[in-house]
Computed example of a mutant assay.
Amino acid sequence: MVTDIPDPAVLPVGPEAAAILRLCRGNALSVAEIAAELDLPLGVVRVLLGDLLDAEQIRVSRPVPPALLPHEHILQEVIHGLRAL
């Protein structure tokens, strides 16, 4: 996940990297979400994110480990409860 994005207006980056920074401002997004939103190949986005990370313009965090996520049966109960409303 990409988080803590600085203001892209003050960064010396190309248009694609600036678009990534604008998109991620205030949002934690996955690499796949960024690629889909900007209609860029996943590999290109990975390279751009690597460059931004090397320049300390972004911070990358790991997703929540599956062991810390709620169990599927709990999510099913929530869905059933919402449908019942």
Score class of each variant (00 low, 15 high):
V64N: 07
L75R: 14
A55F: 03
P63R: 13
P63C: 08
I74R: 09
L69E: 06
L82H: 11
A28C: 15
L42M: 11
H71C: 10
A28G: 12
V31G: 01
L11T: 03
L85T: 05
A19V: 03
P65I: 05
L42R: 10
P70F: 08
D7S: 05
D4E: 13
A32N: 08
V10D: 13
L11F: 02
A18Q: 09
V44Q: 03
I79C: 01
P66I: 04
L11V: 10
L68A: 09
P70C: 12
A17S: 15
P66L: 12
R59W: 03
L68R: 15
E72R: 15
L42D: 06
Q76N: 09
G14Q: 08
P41F: 02
V44H: 03
R83E: 07
P63N: 05
E16A: 11
A84W: 02
R62I: 04
I58Y: 01
A55M: 08
L85M: 14
A55S: 07
I5E: 00
L29N: 02
A36Q: 14
G50E: 05
G43R: 04
V31I: 07
G50L: 01
V45I: 10
L38G: 05
L49C: 11
L75I: 15
I34A: 00
E56K: 12
E77N: 11
E33M: 05
V31T: 09
P70L: 10
V2F: 00
M1K: 02
A35W: 00
L42C: 04
T3N: 02
D39I: 09
H71K: 15
H73Q: 14
H73D: 13
P6Q: 06
A84M: 05
L48R: 04
L48P: 00
D4A: 12
A28Q: 07
A9G: 01
R46G: 00
P65N: 02
D39H: 14
L53W: 08
V10M: 09
E56Q: 08
G81V: 08
R59A: 07
D4V: 07
S61A: 09
Q76H: 10
L42I: 11
E72S: 07
I34N: 00
N27L: 14
D54C: 10
V60D: 00
R83L: 14
I58N: 00
G50A: 06
R22Y: 12
V2S: 01
P65H: 08
P12N: 14
L23V: 11
L29Q: 04
P66D: 08
A17R: 14
L11D: 00
R46H: 04
P15R: 15
G81D: 10
R25D: 15
I74F: 10
E37K: 13
S30G: 12
G43L: 05
I58C: 02
I20N: 05
P65T: 04
V47R: 06
L23A: 12
A19Y: 06
L82D: 02
H71P: 10
G81T: 11
A17K: 12
I74W: 11
R22T: 12
I34P: 00
M1F: 06
A28H: 09
L23S: 04
L42K: 06
L75Y: 13
L85A: 07
G81W: 07
L38E: 01
P8W: 06
M1T: 09
L21A: 08
